[in-house]
Every structure is written in C-alpha cells, then in structure tokens.
C-alpha cells in the first residue's frame, strides 16, 4: 500500500483507440500520442510522466470505459 504524492494517469494502451479527445481536453497538455501501434492497430496515447493535476477531465473526455485511469494526489494504491 502506498499513498501517491503526485497525481497521474495510466493509459491501458490496448483499450485506447487513438481518438485523441483526451489530448484535446487536457488543460495541462500532459498527454501525447505514440507513434507505435497497439494490438488493435491504433496509435495509443500516453502520459508524459509529469504535470498531471488529477483533474479527471481526460477521463470524462475519453469514450472508452477502461482506457484511462486517473489517480489523484493522495490516492492509495497497492
């Protein structure tokens, strides 16, 4: 168990369809699209690794139920 000191997002690459709506929505511009393909043939997105505030905007912009997980600051993770 650990308490996160910084917010972050985790992208499930194989559930991402590369629509980029999260990138457009992100107010901090911390999501990028990868040039590599996932198993479905899409270019998935990825978190830059820093700058996420955990606002959750990308989560609600993303149409895929399981593609993005948002961990806010203080979230308890395994």
């Amino acid at each position: 168990m650990a308490v996160l000191e910084e917010a972050k997002i985790v992208v499930e690459h194989d559930q991402c369809k590369g629509c980029t709506l999260c990138i457009i929505a992100c107010p901090k511009d911390v999501i990028i699209q990868l040039s590599s393909f996932n198993t479905k043939g899409y270019h998935p997105v990825e978190y830059k690794g820093e700058g996420c505030t955990g606002c959750g905007i990308c989560f609600y912009a993303c149409p895929e139920p399981g593609a993005i997980i948002v961990y806010k600051k203080g979230a308890v993770v395994e």
Binding site: E12, K17, Y42, E64, P65, G66, Y71, K72
Partner: peptide, 28 residues
C-alpha cells in the same frame, strides 16, 4: 481519488463475441 471504469460495467465484456473482451465496439 481514483477515476476508473465504473462498477456498473462488466470488468470483462464476456457477452461480446470475438477475442476482444475489453473494448467497446464503438468507433474512435
């Protein structure tokens, strides 16, 4: 503190035919 797939969704879409049980069938 964590935003993730709601409990009201199936964790795995077993009713969906084919190999892909994790993604919706909707277009990007």
């Amino acid at each position: 503190k964590i935003l993730k797939k709601s409990d009201s969704f199936y964790a795995v879409y077993d009713r969906k035919p084919g190999e892909d049980k994790m993604n919706t069938h909707y277009c990007p």
